[in-house]
Nucleic acid binder design. Structure first.
Lengths: 123, 123, 123, 123
DNA sequence: GTGGTCTAGACCACG
DNA sequence: GTGGTCTAGACCACG
């Protein structure tokens, strides 16, 4: 899986990596149990500090997406805990996006189409 | 329109205000041509620095949501430019939200229902 | 509130600070809404790096014990979320401690007395 | 006695095994004088490195819980030294757990009930 | 070899 | 002035 950093983005690097890995798991590009690159390898590949990648892995681990193993490195969790609900933060953010899209004249159908596309992983 | 600041949020205050105004315009709570409170009045009402509100208004003006008028202060624009497209940033953010919701076991229908709700403004 | 670091402990420094602040909040030494020292001040006082204190504050924030404010620094949360349950991790740890105490010949009453003492904050 | 490793835990494997054996002795599942599996047998059973089990046994021996015998392998000690006191480390850890439970809204009685349960071994 | 922790030092956005 | 992020570099325990 290729990680791309947008250096001009306001989103911190560790968060950009985190987001891409979460999306990779959701789309199926990263399978359950699959090994992630080591902290050092990923840092070298992207050209950033190991601390930054470490922060990402720590976060993903806290969120229950991956597990870190002293022997094997980081791996995607087999069973990801399912709360069944959308966080208030994400709801709020979704509402903001929908509002902006609506004001830009984007039809409702196009938003729904995007949701379907992202949900079903036909990226 | 009542602006509520979530002091626990990581979203900067000026951005929280901006988002609520944009959502207010989209939902119709703020009509085209409607006058916004002055920078001072809003700052006083929320209990924050005027500089913060000023930053919000500047941003809204740059984005084309409001116009400022020497005499009347800030007003919601009559015609908001309609690009008809969702920004890449928002698309990416939407994809992240959908991915997280999917991994949390939220059914696709619930996401679509939320989009409809936010789009149609039946909040 | 005085923070004491045991440099010979296996517990990471950021975790030692975190634990002491949590215990301070529980005992009432740190009141709700009370201001914590700034990252820099605490780092200087303890004689460690600001990054380490920053990690502590980040963790306390994630756990819902404190809030950080760009203007005012860190403050103890007014309302701390109450799950009403003990985490599995803490249960397991409690069981380990009780087992070791029992094997050392510590009577049950003494353990209960300690729990009462810590719970009621008569430290 | 069955040893279970939690691969998601931050507690090192050798420590997880050590803790479970100590709890097994305390609960009576492991009787005084009872033979423990050989390092190799246990390592094979759990599917880990023999070095890790070896580290566990060394620790248990140092702590006075077991004794190793050239002929018979490792056995639970007949008389486990009874200091009659709880270590400062465990006291501190207990205080942390009680503090967190209290802040989570767990009533004192529930903590005491857990202590009783673990002490009396009615797990 | 792996992730985890820590330092010294720097720059940034927010308010 | 505040917390947040990041780097370069180092050392550590675990396995």
């Amino acid at each position: 899986m290729v990680i791309r950093i947008d250096e001009y983005s306001d989103v911190p690097i560790y968060m950009q990596i985190r987001n891409q890995i979460v999306m990779g798991i959701s789309s199926g590009e990263l399978k359950a149990g699959e090994q992630l690159p080591t902290v050092r390898a990923l840092a070298l590949e992207i050209g950033i500090n190991t601390m930054t990648v470490s922060k990402t892995y720590q976060m993903l681990k806290n969120e229950g997406y991956i597990m870190t193993d002293r022997k094997n490195g980081a791996r995607v969790r087999q069973m990801i805990e399912q709360s069944g609900v959308i966080s208030d933060e994400n709801k709020n953010e979704l509402r903001r996006i929908v509002s902006e899209a609506r004001l830009s004249g984007v039809p409702r159908e196009e938003l729904v189409k995007l949701v379907d596309e992202y949900y079903l992983g036909n990226t």
